[in-house]
Every structure is written in C-alpha cells, then in structure tokens.
Design a protein around this nucleic acid. Sequence first.
RNA 1: GGAGAGGUGGCUGAGUGGUCGAAAGCGGCACCCUGCUAAGGUGUUAUACGGGUAACUGUAUCGAGGGUUCGAAUCCCUCUCUCUCCGCCA
Length: 431
Amino acid sequence: MIDPKLLKENLSAISSNLKNKNYMLDKGEFLKIDSDRKELILENESLKNKKNLLSKEIGILKSNGEDSTEKTKSVEVINLKLESIKKLLLEAEEKFKNLLLNIPNILDDSVPIGSSEDDNKIEYYSDNINLLENENQNYPEHNEIGKLLGQYDQEAVTKMSGTRFSILFDKFAELHRALGSFMLDIHTKEHNYKEVHVPLIVNNEALVGTGQLPKFKSDLFELKNKENFFLIPTSEVPLTNILREKVLEETDLPILYTSLSTCFRSEAGSYGKDTKGLIRQHQFDKVELVKFVKPSDSSDALNKLVGHAENILKMLKLPYRKVLLCSGDTGFSSSITYDIEVWLPSQKAYREISSCSNFKDFQARRLNIKYKDKLSKKKDYVHTLNGSGLAIGRTLAAVVENYLDNDGNIKIPEVLRPYMKSEKIIKKAGD
RNA sequence: GGAGAGGUGGCUGAGUGGUCGAAAGCGGCACCCUGCUAAGGUGUUAUACGGGUAACUGUAUCGAGGGUUCGAAUCCCUCUCUCUCCGCCA
C-alpha cells in the first residue's frame, strides 16, 4: 500500500509515476475521499471528547450524591449523533482503504519507461554453454522428449485433472525432486536462507497483505466449501505473512526465508498460451526466496537476490539472460523487477524462470511489518523482496531441452548427480 | 470433535462499573552520590493517528469483534490463541 501521506503531498509526481505503470490515478477523487474522511474523523473525535468529559462529570456528581440527569440526557443526545456519524465514517474509511489497496506501488527511478515487454532492458547474457551445435535444427520440446522417454503422459493427466496439469514418471519425477532439493540446499547452505515449510492454503487477509488481493482474485483458486480460503499462487504469500504485525529489532535484519512449495494459478485469460508441456500450469512447484531488510539495504538486497537466482542457473550450466522490466511490465506490488529468463532451444527463445522484485514498504505497510531503529529507537516499515529461485517445472524443461544429446538421451547436470543416485543419463523407455 | 482454565504495558503481576492508560516490582533511560564494572537516591519510561512553532492537547488501544450502560480492563455474546484432560487421526 502506498503511504497516503506521501501520496497526498506528492500527488502530481506520484500520479505521473503510476501513469508509466499504466495506472490512471483520479487525483480529484482521491482528494475528495480523503477530505470527506478527515472531516468525519474530526467530528467524531470532538463528539467523543464531549461525551467523555460529561461522563466523567456524571461520575463525580454521582459520587457526591448530586443530581446528574441533565448531563445524562446530553450524553444521550450525543450518542444519537455519534451513531449516525459512525456509520458514515465507516463507509468513508472503507472507501479510502479500497482506493489505496487498488493503487499500485510507485516505480523505482531506475525502471526504464515503456509500455510492453519490448521495452524491457536486457542487462546480461550468460555464456551459452550448453547450446547444441546445430542452431538451425528443430529441437523437440521437453514434453515430446519426455513422452518419447516414457516419463511424461499428457493424456493420462488430462483424464483426471484436465489441461495445464502434468504427470511425471520415473527419472523425470526424480529429476523434479532433485531440482527442488538442490536449489534448497544451495539457498540454505550458500546463501543463508532459512528453509520454511508453508501452508498451501491461506486466507483473504494474507493475500491482501502481499498484494494479490483485492485486485487479482481471478488469478487465484478459491476453495468452495470453506469461506475465505485460497490456494497460494506462490509461497511468497505465506513466507511474507510470517512476520505480519511484527516489530523486529534492527539486529534481526535481514531475515531470509526460502521455501519449496506447490503453487496454484488459475491462469485465467491465458487461453492458447503455452498449452504444451510444463511451462504454464495450474499447479507447479517453485522454490521461493523472501527477504525482509532495512530500507537502506533493499536495493543492494535486490541485486544479491537476483544473484542467488542466477547462481542456480550458472551451477546448472543453463544459458540465461537477465532482464530489467520496464515500467509497463512491472507488477502491481513491485517497485522494480528483474526477470531471469532461461534458454529453451525448442522455442528458440528465452523464457521467464525467475522474477525478482523489490516491494520496498508496499507489502510491509499492508502487513504492518516494522523494525525498530537501533539508534533512534524509531519504528519504520521494513522493505520486502522476493524472487523465484527457481520455478521447478520450467527448470526441468530447460534441463531436458538443453541437456539433450544426439542420441535422444539426457545428461544429468553435474551438480544434480548427487541427488539422482548417480544416474547420469535418462535412457530411452524400453531399454 | 468434547470438557475445563486462561490471554492486562519490554517482562512479572494487581485491578469486577467512574478521577484507570492502568498499582507495585523488575528491566530501560537521565541525573545525583560514591576513589575505582558494587550499593544507594531522585526523576523518567506504552503505541498509533490527529491538532499546535512550541509548552501542550484530542481520539483510540488491557487477545479480536459486537452488545449492555451516561460511563467498560471490569458485566453479556461471538470469535481467536495458549495450556490441561478426553476422543479421533497421517
């Protein structure tokens, strides 16, 4: 959530900043809602003040055995007024809050202005270590490879769950598990994150806190037989909500959490996109990285976070590039976002495999997560960041496609071999 | 799922209808005293939001929400969390 005070004081500047994110702020509406609310608050408070004073006087009169009916009547009159004001105030507060909850985060100054992904800024290409030699050849897609190898069966899963789900067998299943373990091990042992096992179902408030709600309900799966329950679209939600309503000591920071979890997305509005394979699923696994840091550290923390995601790709020797998203492509809650895109030979394209964002105080404000400054002892909102480290299904696809050899087998990346019972090659089915 | 007990400031813990934002102690901070990392003394010490240059001041907050009342930490209802016991279960 945007700081309402900041917004009010810098209305034009912030409104033009948000315009770059394709959000049109109605300045007049904001000012009106804000002043209406303010007026009601003041009236409410002054009436309560009168009431409190009178009640106190009544107490004194009564203890002296004096008559207090006059004053009691005055309070009754005030209470009637308060009742109607309270109603109006609640409405005004609701309106104000709704407006604020629907305003996206302010963009960082370093975000390039642009309207679509064409305006994103590619900052880095890795050495394309694994690219197969013959670039003109048509490479099979990971799902086709999987089918040939007997590890993947789209028809079977469609019968039980429908499209956008997958079933993996045998070595693919093992590879999937290995990737998760490998990533978690690197993040916990080398990047100092604490591993967390999270719930896959969360309530409405948790999702409002991280920014998925109220605006993006259609992207979520909501449980039907139980009120106010949603499947998580990413473990960012439970991980970030761990510290909700907390005041941390400055010395506690930074706090780094990582989690391997299943994620659920309705993928509404993406009909026909990425219909094959593991790229776009209703259900997928992902290792998530979440950071809570001091505001002064957050920009550095983002660079490190991106580095942690890149590290996994480097260790897997997968070709990738790093992209700074332009203003129009940066998400609702984010101030600045880097995407890591992995090379998929079959698509002859780089595809997003990680998205790393600095939310600054946007989520912390919604979740009320603060820290106490060591010197000034003042409380302030922490900054939160998160990124994928990485999406398992897409990583598996990338490994399968990039490590395909000329015989149609897949070499297991060196770093995964300890996790794969020293299997080096996924053999063709029936061998 | 059933039965019971409980949730008060950084902590311990008083407080069952009025001057209670809340005693006392501990802890913290400031100063004083003291010839030395002891003991003692005095004062101070919750948070959020709003008004005022400021001194100061208003509102809210005793797990959460609602109710009764002129007035609620205190009475009533609902929820939630913790603890104990029983049942069930991976």
